[in-house]
Amino acid sequence: MKTILVDDNLMEIEALRNCCESWPEINLAGVFQDAQQAMSFLNKEEIDLMFLDVEMPEMTGLELIDNLSYLPQIVLTSSNREYAYEALEYEVTDFIKKPVLLKRFQKAMEKVEERHKRINEVALSSAATELYVKSDGKLVRLPYNEILYFENVGDYIKVISERGMHIIYGALKALADRLSYPRFLKVHRSYIVNLDKVVDIEDNSLVIGKKVIPISRAHKPMVMSSINLI
């Protein structure tokens, strides 16, 4: 679990670091003594978990949360109990009143792992039925059963669905590895098709809608073994 610590007090940082060393799942990716530094790091890297002090000069922990483009799991730490209410408002995973002692840290980590498990389960169930593509500054949901095919064009992939076309950056092979839908099949180095959308197959090509898609010799046996040929 990629984790960072943010606290302006060196002793609190050291105490948290010591706690983290007792939890094998934690991969400590960074330690920051001010929120601005943490912000720059978070703009470049994605993390799973952050232990975040609330009261820091320049930028507070809550301001840091407000400025994040995504939300990792957050455990707020403060010597002031009043911030427990804010912790609830921000829906962070836990709030620890300082000093952060090992037993309390372990309790927080149990909550973190529980939430991590839930997030992964949701992500897995989502990956089984749909994907999201970035389009015009939005994330558009594409259920697998609406996708017709994927076509590789240079460094990009065209995603053709019943509702239109989207272009995403990436390689077809990497995409194929992330698709968990069994009806998707690579039929050519430039095409992955949804077998449920095939109209007909003729020699070395198949038709989806009005599009004729080539089937390479290498992929032909796999195509033939994937269809229910009587």
Partner: peptide
Amino acid sequence: KIKNNFTW
């Protein structure tokens, strides 16, 4: 900043 340091 220093109040908890004494506890430690």
